[in-house]
Write a protein that binds this DNA or RNA. Structure first.
Lengths: 359, 359
DNA sequence: TTGTATGCGTTATCAT
DNA sequence: ATGATAACGCATACAA
């Protein structure tokens, strides 16, 4: 290895201030040459090539991505804005997102809105300030930050929306077939002999809440079953277990005749089961329970939950892939909607009934 | 509002290229003045102050944090490196971290090692490249990236380790009183009359796995109960439910006489319960089960889990606060270790026994 | 292949 | 309070 000729490089520089200039001085070449060689822009390997690589290695040189970003206009970072990291829903999506971004070399800046519109606005603002090359967002339910989407468009920052489709703006979207999934699930209940089927919906000001209710309605309609409002109770997406307990109670008291309940999420389903057990009902013997999501807990509880599986990891992966295509401009399509398939997972919380009045 | 005098600002500039220079030209001042005013460095409010703020507002100017970082040497970003985002453990910690960082104005760059040492090394490398001002890390179990810690020290990048203490390097650490928590839990079992207490440990090459086993041993010792190797089975930190089922079986077959099992995590506890139920055992009547963690699932399963609560959100919060102190140099202390208190949460999976041979 | 000149957007410094 | 100059670290364009 070369012993670099003594120059006026201070200890301090060696410890934390190693840059192309430092290396250039030590190697007696210009900074540009160092930059080129370290980026592999020179094809032939010469003495200088090796010398410079060796020095960089010894000094622990790491490229300054901030400086590179400023020069090249590409930050290699992606903003991910979700509503609640501390949930059983988003972490798997983030895992999927990160798996793609990591491979492509993008860094992920994560922010959490807690369903607060001001924080959402601030988060998007920060992303712009940080010059992100793209954004993945799961908008808050009461999406009132419409102007921000427009602004991102003006700045030509690609945006992919996940989970909750934004109703008023055309955008790239990745989600699941909420409506069809719900419909298939309820169809299964109907085929199992259930007619009086209750539903504990998600919040009906949310995309997924509405879609899943639609699916429920469609399944009833296609089977000639009348839709009754008293079989419906609206839930929310916070404090899910307790919502399940409360609203499950409300539903049963309003409509004690139901033989099955379709719940908008696995967690509310678990809450409902908790309540039903408490009042002495047996699941699925007395009442069948159908969840939505297939979260890990679905197999931990008893009875194990029959539910509609959402491919969370895949949502994240597809969203990140789509975003990268938009960034790299390899995908010139107009705004597109990717709906991933759901899958009905039949476990223990649902049961066929035979003595149905119609059957 | 001022109508800015017509200058040669193109539409394209207005859309995405608004910077201090653009605003300066429109306001007939120098870029420096714009910069100062937008940063609030001028105390007196003059016509120009308002004029510039108004123009910036109208044009949707957002500061370029990349450029500012390069100039000021402060990136306002923090790297967070964890082993598995898709778990019931880290998301809450991240929530705690983010709550602090958001308030202070730092962005969070998140990366996921999946317990892979190469990805961990790469992740730290990326953080350095991105000029992060600090790092929070939960190291992989077989921590072989020791040189990286040294390198970060050389670069004077503050580092806070969470959850898994790094054994060979002195570092700032935030975790919980694993040993004491485990000891208190096992003490509770002993006070409830249990003597033959099995343990399904975490991986014993991990800090937490070792500490919790230590706590178990100490509790036995202090109560004059002999430690028996055949009461111990080693688990891992992946695929936890199945590990619980498998290793629970192994433990019961090895030592059918045990009346209680202390599990290294809530999830393995749930796995163990699953297995025990399958072979017809009743919980807690036949065997008491004690978990560790108090994850949300602890109250969803049946019986609800008696467990040792780890304050996850608080771990994240304290780690972020400590990191910020180190960055802002308001905390000049040597490397410090913060151990948060655990809490024994008594629920339904444990029971007193009376016909103990000693009692 | 190598080097010179220049600029990315911002701010620190020094002067006015 | 304002402005002129320079610099952060890197990479592009052009010339040699």
């Amino acid at each position: 290895m070369d012993t670099p000729k003594s120059k006026n490089i201070t200890i301090k520089n060696i410890k934390k201030g190693i840059n192309v200039k430092t290396i250039a001085e030590l190697a007696n070449v210009s900074p540009v040459t160092v930059s080129r060689i370290l980026r592999g822009k020179n094809k032939r390997i010469t003495k200088t090539t090796e010398k410079i690589k060796s020095i960089a290695q010894q000094l622990g040189y790491k490229k300054n991505l901030i400086a590179r970003s400023l020069k090249t206009g590409k930050s290699w970072s992606i903003g991910v804005l979700i509503s609640e990291i501390n949930s059983s829903f988003f972490p798997e999506i983030i895992d999927g997102i990160e798996s793609v971004l990591y491979k492509k070399g993008y860094g992920m800046i994560l922010a959490n809105t807690h369903e607060n519109p001001e924080i959402e606005a601030q988060g998007l603002h920060n992303f712009v300030s940080r010059q992100v090359n793209g954004i993945i967002i799961s908008p808050i339910i009461d999406n009132i930050n419409e102007q921000y989407f427009w602004e991102l468009k003006q700045r030509e920052i690609p945006l992919v929306v996940i989970d909750r489709k934004y109703p008023f703006v055309q955008c790239d979207f990745v989600g699941v077939e909420d409506k069809l999934g719900a419909k298939n699930g309820v169809n299964y209940l109907i085929k199992s002999g259930h007619i009086k089927i209750g539903m504990l919906t998600g919040p009906l000001n949310s995309y997924t809440g509405k879609e899943r209710l639609e699916g429920y309605k469609e399944a009833l309609m296609e089977n000639g079953i009348e839709f009754k409002k008293r079989y419906i109770v609206e839930g929310s997406y916070v404090n899910l277990i307790n919502i399940g307990i409360e609203k499950g109670k409300e539903l049963i008291q309003k409509s004690p005749d139901i033989t099955a309940i379709f719940c908008g999420t696995d967690e509310t389903a678990i809450g409902v089961i908790k309540y039903l057990k408490k009042i002495g009902k047996k699941i699925p013997e007395d009442i069948s329970i159908l969840g939505f999501g297939d979260l890990p807990i679905a197999t931990m509880v008893e009875p194990q939950l029959t539910t509609i599986k959402q491919p969370l990891y895949e949502i994240g992966k597809q969203a990140a892939l789509l975003l990268c295509e938009k960034i790299e401009e390899t995908n010139k399509n107009e705004k597109q909607t990717i709906l991933l398939k759901t899958e009905l997972i039949i476990r223990e919380s649902t049961k066929k009934i035979i003595n149905s009045s119609i059957k």
